[in-house]
Amino acid sequence: MTTRWLTPEEQRAWRAYVAATHLLEDAIDRQLQQDAGMPHLYYSILANLSEAPERRLRMTDLAEKTKITRSRLTYAVTRLEKDGLIRRENCRWDKRGSIAALTDEGMAVLERTAPGHVETVRTFLFDQLTDEQVEQLEEICTGIARALEGDGERPSVDEVPWLRRSSPSCS
């Protein structure tokens, strides 16, 4: 197989993408550490639980939604559980499974932290784009997600939480 090297234009675009995503993730992590003492991953776990029916999800479903391994999720949930933000419950219909449930305290932390998080995302991402560029960003990211998920179908907004337009949690 012949290597398809990046063109100079693709190389510049790739490097700009990598720099922007790393800098944005760093800014989000700094804000969340300052406001809630947690990294973006932990906030995303809380946000996903807040949007789930009864604020509960099976651990395997939560791992899928947050795009992390089950072992990494177990570690994060253990920490959030120790902080009183999540409670683990037995799964009634599958004795091998367990449920992560967002506690009232976890919801309160999320509600306190969400405004600063949304402001960070708005300031460093959306305030830098025109309305047309926001639409293009959505198309580009949806196409990339579709290719990475490998099913050839455009993921629905419900399947990809960060594509939700009205999500107050801005995960």
Rank of each mutant, 00 (worst) to 15 (best):
Q11C: 14
G97Y: 04
L110W: 00
T78Y: 11
R4P: 09
R88V: 01
I86T: 09
Q11A: 10
P168L: 04
R165G: 11
I140T: 10
A63D: 07
R146K: 10
E111D: 09
C91A: 11
R112G: 12
T3Y: 15
E119S: 11
E89P: 00
T66P: 02
L6I: 05
L125F: 09
R154G: 01
S156K: 14
L41M: 08
L62V: 06
A13M: 09
D29A: 11
Q136T: 04
K95G: 00
Q128T: 06
G152K: 09
S171V: 08
I140L: 15
R15P: 00
D29C: 09
L137T: 01
V121A: 13
L110T: 03
Q11D: 09
D151E: 14
M38V: 04
D94E: 01
G37E: 04
T66G: 01
E111Y: 06
G152E: 12
Y42D: 14
E138C: 04
D61P: 00
R55S: 10
T69I: 01
H40G: 11
L125Y: 05
A16S: 11
L73I: 03
Q31Y: 07
A16V: 07
Q33K: 13
P39K: 13
Y43G: 03
E64R: 15
G150P: 12
C91W: 08
R58T: 06
Y75S: 09
F124K: 12
A63W: 07
K82N: 13
E159A: 13
T74S: 10
E105F: 00
V109E: 08
H117P: 12
K65M: 09
D158R: 10
T130A: 04
P168R: 06
S156C: 02
I144S: 04
M1V: 05
Q33N: 08
V160Y: 10
E105P: 01
L57Q: 13
D61C: 07
S98M: 07
D151F: 06
T78K: 14
S98V: 01
L80N: 03
G37N: 06
R146E: 07
E89Q: 01
R55N: 09
K95C: 01
Y75W: 15
G84Q: 03
D94F: 02
S98E: 06
K67P: 01
E111W: 05
E51N: 07
A19I: 00
C91K: 03
L163K: 11
E149L: 15
A114E: 07
M59R: 13
E149Q: 13
K95T: 01
D104R: 12
E81R: 05
D35L: 14
Q128R: 15
P8N: 06
T21L: 08
G37P: 02
E135W: 11
